[in-house]
């Protein structure tokens, strides 16, 4: 189990200097989540939200100076026994350019006692990647496949993938995901994947977290997340239901729009609770529509002003 408790991260400004909470850039602010064993956890967030920073903290690339990160009860930074349970695939593959696939396998086998050449052989044969060719000659998709093979072959309890499916065509994306799931399910491993692709997270993960500008917006099981939001459409002959009426009824309104006598709003809460409240407005039509994860993502970020400055400037 991974426990992240009130973890924060401050970066110094570029140039000479030391990280200072007042002067530096706060990439993560007080993040607290628990990632249970055997789940597939999705980190969702806008660009620069702090997903990669959190993944780097999880694998001990960044030292956690505020808060704590525990891997099965152990601190991870500079702790080989905790790190031996983690394999991190970052969002670039340039660092592997000089390696051949076999060379990369040997490299990681030198560090991971758990490295399985049996898994490696099986996956390489399955994906039919060239073993003796330098990875600089691989296509972007092939490089991704190669790193995922190595990650799975390291046979760790936790697999951390940062935008790992970028560059794969849809068919290969599906194929790779299936391979990962099969491997992880077999050994009850945990995968944490960060992505902008909400559909992917929706398909792959059973839990997810949304972060924006370093702050956690929500973290829960995907089904719970989805059931915590809804879009309502209200039509009232005597006049459209106002935003104040909605708020006064106790609804948590994220977005509101009106067209004639029809009001539309995105609200937080369970379907039962929202339905009970909207039935009190005396509307001719009162409809609850569940949101997709993608819609939740967009509305949550819009509610925090994300992208509005770009839209404003384009108008």
């Amino acid at each position: 189990m991974i426990e992240i408790g009130s973890a924060s991260m401050v970066f110094a400004k570029r140039g000479i200097g030391k990280a200072d909470a007042n002067d530096g850039f706060k990439a993560l602010d007080n993040i607290t989540i628990t990632i249970p064993d055997g789940c597939i956890y999705g980190f969702l967030g806008s660009n620069g939200a702090g997903k990669s920073t959190l993944l780097r903290m999880l694998c001990g690339v960044y030292k956690t100076e505020q808060g704590s990160i525990k891997i099965d009860g152990e601190d991870v930074f500079d702790n080989p026994s905790a790190k031996a349970k983690i394999f991190f695939v970052n969002d670039e593959t340039v660092q592997y350019a000089k390696f051949t696939l076999d060379g990369l396998a040997k490299f990681y086998a030198s560090y991971y006692d758990s490295f399985s050449f049996e898994i490696y052989e099986r996956l390489v044969n399955q994906l039919q990647l060239p073993r003796g060719k330098r990875m600089s000659e691989f296509s972007k998709g092939m490089k991704r496949q190669a790193v995922v093979i190595i990650g799975l072959s390291c046979n760790t309890k936790y697999l951390l993938l940062d935008e790992a499916f970028d560059g794969l065509d849809p068919a290969m994306r599906r194929f790779i995901k299936q391979i990962i799931i099969n491997e992880l399910v077999d050994r009850q491993a945990t995968m944490i994947v960060s992505s902008h692709n909400i559909t992917e997270i929706n398909e792959l993960c059973d839990r997810a977290m949304l972060i924006h500008q370093g702050q956690m917006i929500f973290a829960d099981e995907i089904d719970n997340i989805k059931s915590g939001f809804g879009k309502i459409q209200l039509a009232r002959r005597s006049g459209a239901v106002t935003e104040d009426e909605l708020k006064n009824s106790g609804l948590d309104v994220m977005q509101y729009s009106v067209m004639g006598s029809v009001a539309q709003a995105v609200v937080r809460g369970s379907e039962d609770d929202i339905t009970a409240k909207i039935n009190t407005f005396g509307c001719e039509i009162a409809e609850f529509i569940p949101l997709t994860l993608e819609e939740i993502f967009i509305y949550e970020l819009e509610a925090r002003g994300y992208g509005s400055n770009i839209i404003d400037s384009s108008i």
Partner: peptide, 18 residues
């Protein structure tokens, strides 16, 4: 000095001193 190599190197299960 290289973030990509640093990611690989620091995530490896080996102490910084080692």
């Amino acid at each position: 000095y290289n973030q990509q190599f640093c990611d690989v190197s620091m995530a490896l299960p080996i102490k910084a001193s080692e």
